[in-house]
Amino acid sequence: MNPIFRGLAIYVFLLLIFRITGKRSLSETTTFEFVLLLIISETIQQAMVGEDFSITTAFLLIMTLMGADLVLSLLKNKFKTVDKITEGTPVIIVDNGKPLQHRMKLSRVAEEDVLNAARSSLGLERMEEIKFAVLENDGSISIIPYKN
């Protein structure tokens, strides 16, 4: 198959699989997840390049991937819906110190994850000190504390 089509197929597939598995998948890079990411990238590299190690193919693939990303970013900028479909939207998971259980469960976020984010980013000690916690599009958790 033409390397450009291979690159595009891989790009679309990755976009789809990361949307299906959700924001929380591979969002925290533990040692295991880091190794998993390396294995995924190695698998993709072999499928895209095959036995063709020419510099032309490398140039074409890099341009394909960067071009696809550029087009997607332009579309996201122009159409809000494309942005939502490809990135998702942030979700509030703690409201005035109260964990929103359904939202957290369905988004696969545990209370401990929120407390962990609160401790590491702001040094907060308890859930009641959190005004809002938001699950961001990249899978990270933002903590907004009460203002003293």
Binding site: K84, T89, P90, V91, I92, D95, L100, Q101, H102, R103, L106, F132, V134, I144
Partner: peptide
Amino acid sequence: KLEDVKQDSLQVEED
């Protein structure tokens, strides 16, 4: 089912 959140202080584009 997701809980409703009524707030206007946090500027977040939640849908």
